[in-house]
């Protein structure tokens, strides 16, 4: 910083020295060309040009160009930042999209797996229930057959008893005086045995 300050102090001296060197030929040139055909001008116009330009530079430099350039830079930086943010967000969005796609694919695969498992399980359950139902129906059929068989036997037995009793009663009425009780019983039993023999081949 001190070096820069020293340099700043030295700059006006250098400018003054160089201006003096440059003004001398300029003055001679102005004096020579004042009466010529080409519009040369004079020293006063040259000095006035420099002064007016420097004043305009000072005014516009401080109150126009500096704020405008600063605002332009601020706006350009803002636009660049916005573009950068937009690009970053686009990148993030693309990454998120890829991630979501992966998750969606994984979820779809998982759902398919779960569905497949559920179907397999449902099929297993169906098979199991069908087996049980078949066993149950078979058991019910068997027990019904046994019950029917038993009912048949009971009915037949009751029929034998009733028939025997009826036959005895009928025979007793017809042969009440010729048959003794022992003969009567023997005849009835023989008759029953014959009936049973006749019935058994039909049942088999």
């Amino acid at each position: 910083m001190p070096a820069a300050l020293e340099m700043r102090k030295a700059v006006p001296c250098l400018v003054a020295a160089l201006a003096a060197i440059a003004v001398a030929p300029c003055a001679a040139w102005a004096a020579e060309g004042a009466g010529g055909g080409i519009p040369v001008g004079d020293l006063g116009q040259a000095v006035a040009t420099i002064v007016i330009f420097l004043l305009l530079l000072a005014v516009l430099g401080k109150w126009a160009w500096k704020p405008i350039v600063a605002q332009l830079q601020r706006r350009e930086e803002g636009i660049a930042q916005t573009i950068q943010h937009a690009q970053e967000r686009e990148k993030q969005a693309l990454e998120l999209l890829a991630q979501y796609k992966k998750q969606l694919e994984a979820a779809e695969a998982q759902a398919a797996e779960l569905l497949s498992q559920a179907r397999r399980r449902a099929a297993g359950e169906q098979e199991k229930l069908l087996g049980q139902a078949r066993q149950e129906s078979r058991r019910l059929v068997q027990s019904a057959t046994v019950e029917i068989e038993q009912a048949k036997i009971d009915a037949l037995r009751e029929l034998y008893d009733r028939t025997a009793q009826l036959a005895v009663d009928v025979a007793a009425k017809a042969l009440r005086q010729t048959l003794r009780p022992e003969d009567h019983r023997r005849l009835v039993e023989e008759s029953l045995r014959e009936i049973a023999q006749e019935a058994s081949p039909k049942n088999d």
């Binding site: 160089l18 440059a22 102005a30 080409i38 519009p39 020293l43 116009q45 040259a46 420099i50 330009f53």
Partner: peptide, 20 residues
């Protein structure tokens, strides 16, 4: 800008900028 003194002064500003 149609007289040499003015354009010369403008060129002198450039020259001085270069030199300084």
């Amino acid at each position: 800008t149609g007289i040499l003194a003015v354009t010369g002064a403008m060129a002198f500003i450039t020259f001085m900028t270069i030199v300084v």
